[in-house]
Design a protein around this nucleic acid. Structure first.
Lengths: 350, 350
DNA sequence: TCGCGTTTTGTGACCGGTCACAAGAAAAAA
DNA sequence: TTTTTTCTTGTGACCGGTCACAAAACGCGA
């Protein structure tokens, strides 16, 4: 069907014998069009292979059919250089595109700097250039209030991943506390009595919520809580390795460890190997995130799986709804998955 | 600097006391503008915080400042669902955006179906909507000649990742044969005499080139070549596991294995564990790709690292060059890296 | 039948840039 | 000095849609 050149709305209008505006109304599912006319227009669109030009639509019109996905440059760089085993962008692409396609939207990925002043300037520039209907801010930018305000000031809908206020924004998150509980409960159910928690950072809200969940279960089951069994691993391999080594060498060592992210879980894995222990026999291990490497590790790890794709899909849906004039702000809590693999087993006394 | 509303080219023109067209010429670095005028316009742009509206530019103008990155839906889905440990998109984002930013371009990621007819229709639709300056086709779509022709027919520049013809297209690839040689040479240098090659698929050109490299080195070093030491793993975990198991149980078993992708390398890793051998003592292992999981495996794997980010950056550069009217077609071969980690060691006779 | 409200359709202007072409200014040639 | 050429600048139309508003067609009660 080699469409000769570009088919425009005027071609369709001429073909059917109606005005441009009528065709436009059909395209936008406007209300006041006779069913018979609508059908004829739709048939013509189909036959001529007409596709609306997104740029033209945005010129006079208000919608741009574009959603901006903002990623952190540093994190992307790190993933690129050091190979953190993060599949965040993959997840975004899958979750976001699937949703966007349904509504005729497209996703533009942008990288902006972590440093707040730079981030502000870069975001400001890109929204002027592209004028998207909505912007998704991912961590750490979702924590940056200035960026959200900038968008709000420009009348651009904004979704934040990993936040939970939801006042005027589309916030998507998961129930971190429940995830902390789930991981701990799983280990308690397996008979573990000495469960350690390798936290990320005490400045990171989500980290604290998980820790709350962990403590709640210990409390609830009457398990021993020791100050030194909550370590801070700074989300880093090296720091986590040190903490893990200390635990493993102590007498009365923990028989299970929950790691706040995969990076630290791998640190534990390597430390265990170094000390000559085996997982899950000598130590049970649960990780958060469930990025790809986790499933291929030896042994594959039991993990909380963050619903990244679902969160982004939800963010897109919210933004698209907002851009059609309906308020969709609020906090959307997406369900996580708990995936039991081979790094956890029933605790045996021997 | 709360820019009140939208600053347009007319505002700048009025501010400087010059016509729109002159401002436009400055923006596009057109030739015939007096230096003094140019400086004044540039100062005004800076002061007013003017940013050109990409959509408006594309309406009458010819350039869109948009590059489309086409990804395979199935592969993205698989990565999402099964967690293949692929960081392809991450790499694309990093490599592509870095290059695009330099030239004021943006990247739009799209997912299209693997099935050729669907892929054609979907690509056709998206280029009509977005009218990008260039499109990057990634595997498997880079192998689909119809898609490239469709783009060519519409006058849209096209870059293909993993192809090497370069006739009218910007093809980017790496030297697969040299990579195959490198991996094999490394093992030979370590004293291995029985080196097996776990190939992906004999229908995949790049796979064959690596295999050529492997054979060339064996030949060159006078090492034994056995038919059964070249296995076909279909790029899949399960198939590769079977092949690996057979090799490991055979007497005169290979002492080193080269796996055509990470997925299969992991299969070998798991099989070795199952059989009770150890890497690298009982078997040396080299993988291609070097996706993130590989660096965190126990032990971390020696691998050929595909220059994904560099290839995408090169693709972007080529497309942007083309869109400014200069022919940039041809085949660009990007250098790969060889990263020695702990899965390979000197062969010991005992 | 007429009048009035509602639904359906059409018209011209417009969004913010760039293109084609024309006109004015400056430099080179006669 | 005049003419020709080249450089610089400006003007109106235009890209392909949508908005605001006007006009026409329809429905229905009086």
């Amino acid at each position: 069907m080699g469409t000769k050149s570009t088919v425009t709305i005027r071609d369709v209008a001429a073909d059917v014998g109606v005005s441009r505006q009528t065709v436009s109304r059909v395209l936008n599912k406007g209300p006041n069009v006779k069913p018979a006319v609508r059908a004829k227009v739709e048939a013509s669109i189909e036959r001529l292979g007409y596709v609306p030009n997104i740029s033209a639509r945005r010129m006079r019109g208000s919608r741009s059919y574009l959603i901006l996905a903002i990623n952190d440059r540093q994190r992307t760089y790190d993933n690129w250089r050091a190979g953190r085993g993060n599949d965040w962008v993959d997840q975004m692409l899958f979750g976001g595109m699937t949703e966007c396609e349904k509504h005729g939207y497209h996703m533009v990925f942008e990288l902006i700097d972590t440093e707040p002043a730079k981030a502000h300037a870069q975001l400001s520039k890109v929204i002027s250039e592209l004028r998207p209907d909505g912007v998704i801010l991912t961590p750490p930018h979702s924590e940056n209030g200035d960026l959200a305000d900038l968008l709000k000031g420009q009348g651009i809908a904004c979704a934040r991943v990993g936040r939970r206020e939801g006042h005027g924004f589309v916030d998507v998150c998961m129930d971190e506390r429940a995830a902390g509980e789930q991981a701990t409960r799983h280990l308690a159910d397996l008979g573990h009595q000495r469960i350690a928690y390798l936290a990320g950072s005490s400045e990171y809200g989500n980290s604290l919520m998980r820790l709350d969940g962990y403590r709640a279960i210990l409390e609830n089951r009457g398990l021993e809580q020791r100050e030194e069994w909550v370590g801070e691993g700074a989300f880093s391999f090296d720091t986590a390795s040190k903490v893990a080594l200390q635990w493993l060498k102590s007498k009365d060592r923990p028989t299970a460890i929950i790691a706040d992210n995969d990076q630290m879980a791998f640190a534990v894995l390597h430390t265990v190997e170094r000390v000559g222990f085996r997982i899950p026999d000598d130590l049970a291990l649960v990780s958060f995130e469930d990025t790809p490497g986790v499933r291929l590790s030896v042994p594959p790890m039991t993990a909380i799986r963050q619903p990244t794709a679902a969160m982004i899909a939800q963010a897109c849906e919210g933004l698209i709804t907002e851009s059609s004039g309906i308020d969709a702000s609020g906090c959307y809590e997406m369900p996580f998955e708990f995936i039991e693999r081979d790094s956890t087993a029933r605790f045996s006394q021997d």
